[in-house]
């Protein structure tokens, strides 16, 4: 019998404690961010899709067409092509396509690159209506950014 009343009293008390906690939060300021109106800066290490890096000295990309990224990619989403450089030695990048629909953002390509020609972009607003919008021509993107 005492257990019965004890349970009623402690149970009722626990209910009031709960109400007390929620009403305190009711009057506290909100912690959410109103996303499209406010945004947070992305962290420096944020891993968006990959992007080619601009070489300030040479005024072009840093790629030497070693195909390392293509081989490292687990989902085969990188295709690139190059041709023999005019005059000098080595190769020049002519095409770099990223099929972002397959990419899992693992970053193995960035890691494997010997010349640090690849980097993560900070883009996260990626929504669209067509699958084809996500086959990025990274070379074109780079040129558009630096022209």
């Amino acid at each position: 019998m005492t257990a019965y009343f004890k349970e009623i009293i402690s149970g009722t008390w626990s209910l009031f404690v709960g109400l007390g906690i929620t009403i305190v939060y009711f009057f506290k300021p909100v912690v959410t961010l109103q996303y499209p109106h406010e945004t947070l800066p992305m962290t420096p290490r944020y891993r968006g899709h990959i992007d080619l890096v601009w070489d300030e000295v040479r005024g072009t990309n840093k790629c030497i067409v070693c195909n390392g990224c293509m081989k490292a990619c687990p989902s085969n989403c990188i295709t690139l092509a190059g041709e023999k450089a005019e005059g000098g030695k080595g190769k020049v990048l002519t095409q770099y396509t990223l099929d972002f629909t397959k990419c899992s953002l693992c970053g193995l390509c960035v890691e494997v690159c010997p010349t640090e020609a690849l980097d993560f972009s900070k883009e996260y607003n990626l929504a669209g209506f067509d699958e084809k919008d996500y086959v990025f021509d990274l070379l074109k993107r780079l040129e558009a950014k630096h022209s």
């Binding site: 962290t43 420096p44 290490r45 944020y46 891993r47 899992s104 953002l105 693992c106 970053g107 993560f120």
Partner: peptide
């Protein structure tokens, strides 16, 4: 974790 790994859920 995002500041160190670069992603928020499916870390690699």
């Amino acid at each position: 974790l995002e500041t160190v790994t670069g992603s928020r859920l499916t870390y690699c």
